[in-house]
Computed example of a mutant assay.
Amino acid sequence: MRILAAGLSALVLTLGFSSASRADELLKECMVTSSEKMCQCIIARIPADQRSNAILGLRKSNQSVSVSGNLLNPSNLSPQEMQGLNAVVAAQAYCM
């Protein structure tokens, strides 16, 4: 029983750090094009289970703009990247 409890505690800590790490990554990607205040608002509006996809979508968008100077073509996105960008756009609209 103690081993199970210790295992569950380790899992909870790992998930907690993982969630914090995703928030840090999301903040980093968001701040490429937005202020910290706006990004904090956006992050607060994106559910934890959508943050990985939001990171993927923002990263792809940031790469597109930095490489070509053009906005991202949505047809070049994977379903996960599209879901992530949709979550970011919805949160951004709320935060404006």
Rank of each mutant, 00 (worst) to 15 (best):
M1Q: 11
M1L: 09
M1N: 13
L4M: 10
L4Y: 05
L4I: 13
L4C: 08
A5V: 13
A6Y: 11
A6K: 14
L8P: 08
L8Q: 01
L8F: 13
A10M: 02
A10N: 04
L11I: 09
L15Q: 02
L15A: 10
L15N: 03
G16Y: 00
F17Y: 12
S18R: 07
A20Y: 04
A20K: 00
S21E: 05
R22S: 11
R22K: 15
A23Y: 06
A23R: 01
A23V: 02
D24E: 15
E25S: 15
L26W: 00
L27P: 00
K28W: 02
K28G: 09
E29D: 05
E29F: 01
C30G: 00
M31E: 12
V32T: 13
V32W: 03
T33L: 13
S34P: 02
S35M: 09
S35L: 03
E36Q: 15
E36V: 15
E36P: 01
M38V: 15
M38N: 14
C39Y: 10
C39G: 13
C39S: 12
Q40I: 02
Q40T: 14
C41N: 04
I42M: 08
I42K: 07
I43F: 00
I43G: 03
A44S: 14
R45Y: 04
I46E: 04
I46K: 07
P47S: 12
P47N: 08
P47K: 12
A48G: 02
D49Q: 14
Q50C: 06
Q50Y: 07
R51C: 02
S52L: 12
S52G: 14
S52D: 00
N53W: 08
N53Q: 14
A54F: 10
I55V: 13
L56W: 04
G57Y: 06
G57R: 07
G57A: 04
L58V: 00
L58T: 07
R59S: 09
R59L: 08
R59W: 00
K60F: 11
S61D: 01
S61Q: 09
S61A: 05
N62S: 12
N62L: 00
Q63W: 11
Q63R: 05
Q63V: 01
Q63N: 11
Q63I: 04
S64R: 02
S64P: 02
V65A: 08
V67T: 13
S68E: 02
S68D: 04
S68L: 10
S68A: 11
G69T: 07
G69A: 10
G69Q: 07
N70L: 10
N70F: 11
N70S: 12
L72Y: 05
L72E: 02
L72W: 08
N73P: 03
P74S: 09
S75M: 03
S75G: 05
N76A: 13
N76V: 04
L77R: 09
L77V: 12
S78R: 05
P79K: 09
P79Q: 11
Q80L: 08
E81A: 13
E81T: 10
E81V: 00
M82H: 07
Q83T: 11
Q83I: 03
G84L: 00
G84W: 06
L85C: 01
L85E: 03
N86V: 08
A87H: 08
A87N: 06
V88P: 01
V88F: 14
V88N: 00
V89I: 11
A90L: 07
Q92F: 10
Q92N: 08
A93G: 09
Y94R: 05
Y94A: 13
C95K: 12
C95A: 00
M96F: 15
M96G: 13
M96R: 15
